[in-house]
Computed example of a mutant assay.
Amino acid sequence: MKVNIEDYYKRTNQNVAPKGLKKEKKSPFTLAEMLYGTFNIVVSVIFILFIIITNIAKPIISNLINQNFPLETRLIFFLSILIMIIGILFEIYAIEKARLHKYSLIGAIIFFFSLFMTFSITYIIIKYSLNWVGIQLFGQTEIGLNKLFYLPSIAYLGYSIFNVYYSYTLINSQ
């Protein structure tokens, strides 16, 4: 029996695959959604801890600073809870996408929840004004009416619009 060694080194254009084996779909890389969800959870926990400490120390802070400051944190707490929920939803989305299991449903839930976040901050801005953070914390004083408190409202509105866009791209990328 003659063996031609060149046959072993000859490259072919054929894809050699064993018969009877199915190619399994590889789970997608979901690190971005995981990191974004973790970032949201960490930021919301920091805000919630700040709110809890502020509410516990409210009498002491009021006596030290001024009695005119209401230090109302209810709306900030509400928005922090929304950030935490969106972070948890992004974490669930990343896990479900890695498992290749119903991640499109979670993406749709994230999209509608992001719309809810956008409508809620818009409602708060319309109802209380653009510097609602300053008014809630420091009342109708000079500090509370400072235009610097416009920034948290604008940042949160931009953040929620970004979440709507990002969740929309997650739905369409599937």
Rank of each mutant, 00 (worst) to 15 (best):
T38R: 01
K22H: 14
P59V: 05
Y159R: 03
M117F: 13
I65Q: 11
T73V: 12
I109L: 14
T12R: 05
I60Q: 13
N131M: 07
Y168R: 11
I143T: 07
L137F: 07
I48H: 00
I56W: 14
N40A: 00
L82V: 01
N131D: 00
L145H: 12
L75M: 15
S27F: 13
F69W: 11
K23R: 12
L137R: 05
K25S: 09
N68P: 09
I154N: 05
Y150Q: 03
I5L: 14
V16D: 09
E142P: 03
I161N: 06
L21N: 10
F113R: 05
K127E: 07
S62Y: 02
F116Y: 12
G20K: 08
F69N: 03
I110H: 13
V133N: 04
M34D: 07
F112Q: 06
S153I: 05
N163M: 11
Y103K: 08
M34K: 11
V3T: 00
L145T: 06
D7T: 09
L49G: 00
I92D: 04
F78K: 00
L157F: 14
I52S: 09
I135S: 07
I143A: 03
I52Q: 03
Y165D: 01
L75V: 02
T54E: 10
I51P: 10
G134M: 03
I51G: 09
F138V: 04
I143L: 12
E142G: 02
K22I: 10
S80Y: 08
S104T: 04
T122F: 14
K26R: 05
V16C: 11
I124G: 07
L170T: 01
E96I: 02
E72M: 14
P59C: 01
Y165P: 02
A57C: 12
L64G: 06
Q14M: 11
N68W: 15
A155C: 07
K58N: 00
I46M: 09
N15Q: 13
P28R: 07
K127P: 04
Y103S: 00
N68M: 14
S120C: 05
T169K: 15
L49W: 13
W132G: 06
K10A: 06
R74P: 02
L148R: 01
V45G: 06
N146D: 01
K19I: 10
K23S: 09
I81S: 10
F47T: 01
G134C: 08
A32I: 13
K10V: 09
S62T: 00
I52H: 09
I86A: 10
S27L: 06
Y159Q: 05
S62A: 08
F90L: 06
I61R: 06
N15T: 00
S27R: 03
I76W: 02
E24N: 11
A98R: 14
I106P: 02
T54Y: 12
P70R: 08
T38F: 14
Y150P: 00
I56F: 15
E142T: 05
L100R: 00
E72W: 15
P70Q: 08
E24V: 07
Q136S: 14
V43W: 13
F112M: 10
I41R: 04
F112P: 01
N40D: 08
L49A: 10
N15S: 09
I56K: 04
